[in-house]
Every structure is written in C-alpha cells, then in structure tokens.
C-alpha cells in the first residue's frame, strides 16, 4: 500500500506530466493559452487574479524552499529549525491566504458572471476542483498543524521522500508516519500534476520572461531569403 501511494502514484503522475506536456506542446499549440476572459468581466478579476497569481508564486517559492532545499543547507547558512518554522509559517500563511482569497474571487467570478461561466470547459471544472482541493488541504496543513498546532517537521520526512522520488531513490517508508492532512495534500498535488498538461495550467510554462530582453518589434519572413534567387 505504501509503495502504491508513495512510489507508484508519483511515478505515474510524473510520467503523465512529462509525456502529456510533450504531446500537448506538439499537438495543441492553438489551445495553449491563458484563455483570458478579462474582456468579459474585469472587476473581480482586477483583484482576484493578481492575488491568486502572486500568492501562488509565493506559495510555490515556499514549496521550493521547503521541499527541494535540504535541511542541511539551510542550517549551514544559519537558519535553524525555529527560524525556518517562523518564516515558513508566517510567509506561508500570508501566501496561502492570498491564494485562497484570489482563488475564491476567481471562482466566485466564474460562477456569478454568466459571461464567464459560458466559457468554462470541462477541463476548467476538473482543474478548479483539483486545485481547490490541493490548496484547501495545504492551507489546512499549514494553519492546522504548523500555525495553530504543535508543528510538523515535514522537511525531515516529506521533503526527503520527495527528493528521493525525483532522484529515482524513492523511500516510501518516509511517508508512513506523516499526518494524514499532509498525505492528502501530497496525493492531491500528484493528481494536479497528472492533469496539468491537459488543462489551461500549461500557460504557466509560457511565462514570458524572455520579453524582458526581446527587441520590441518582431519581423518574420514567409521563406528564407537565400532560396529566393
């Protein structure tokens, strides 16, 4: 059972994640878009979208720190467990609140604006459900365990397990004693990873960072010049 949940599920999800993205990139460039609906409703979006996105960046940043950076490294630079816990919980809660508020506004917008509702696809509905579940579970974990509760040192277990999966040295046993809420959050995240390539979330990979150094005006030729002679 342990192997099924903490080895099989992750690798299946990762495989779908990778293969799915390759397929989607090659086959559905036309559908690879944010599917913007600002023109249909802008009032709720004005607040909801930046809140959600910036909150999500912060939360993801926190996950990078908490999952991918080994404890040894943080301690080596002088951040002890307590300091880490303080920062991660406070920043994490703020980020989490932003995400929840943002997502709440975006969800409310999609439900209450008839214009926006009509552009919602099946993939959108599945995505909203999974992302809401993941975030809700994550918030419960952070607030329940680490803010209001005694605190759980996930860096000792979950983070190690996670890095093990990525480096093909998975140790399912690490997850055995993890609190249920974290386990559910992790599983929910794998589900999200698995559906990611088939939803509008692919727009994340198109974050236009290169715009910062691209010349303003872009030209294209229909055919290379040399062939013309």
């Amino acid at each position: 059972m342990s192997v099924a949940l903490w080895v099989v599920v992750p690798y299946i999800a990762l495989t779908i994640f990778v293969v799915g993205h390759v397929w989607r990139w090659r086959v559905d460039q036309f559908g690879w878009t944010t599917r913007t609906t600002q023109v249909l409703e802008s009032r709720l979006l004005r607040l909801g979208s930046p809140l959600f996105h910036l909150g999500a960046f912060a939360a993801i940043g926190g996950h990078v720190l908490g999952l991918l950076v080994p404890k040894s490294l943080t301690e080596a630079v002088g951040v002890d467990e307590h300091l880490y816990h303080l920062v991660s919980v406070s920043a994490g809660t703020v980020a989490g609140l932003m995400v929840v508020a943002g997502l709440g506004l975006l969800l409310a917008r999609r439900l209450t604006s008839p214009r926006v509702r009509r552009t919602t696809t099946r993939a959108d509905k599945v995505l909203f459900a999974v992302i809401a579940a993941t975030i809700a579970l994550g918030m419960s974990a952070t607030v329940g365990q680490n803010l209001l509760g005694g605190g759980y040192d996930y860096r000792a277990t979950i983070a190690v397990w996670f890095r093990g999966v990525l480096t093909f040295h998975p140790d399912p046993g690490l997850m055995a004693g993890v609190p249920l809420i974290f386990q559910l959050h992790a599983l929910s995240a794998w589900v999200l990873a698995a559906i990611w390539p088939f939803t509008r979330l692919v727009h994340v990979w198109s974050a236009p960072v290169a715009y910062l150094w691209r010349p303003y005006v872009v030209y294209r030729r229909r055919a290379p010049l040399g062939v013309r002679r």
Partner: peptide, 13 residues
C-alpha cells in the same frame, strides 16, 4: 507587436 510578451505578433518582412 512591441507589447506582445510572447512574441506571437509579428510584422511580415
């Protein structure tokens, strides 16, 4: 074209 962050817009040579 200048404002397009993804570079999808272009002017034909």
């Amino acid at each position: 074209v200048a404002a397009c962050p993804s570079g999808a817009m272009y002017k034909r040579e």
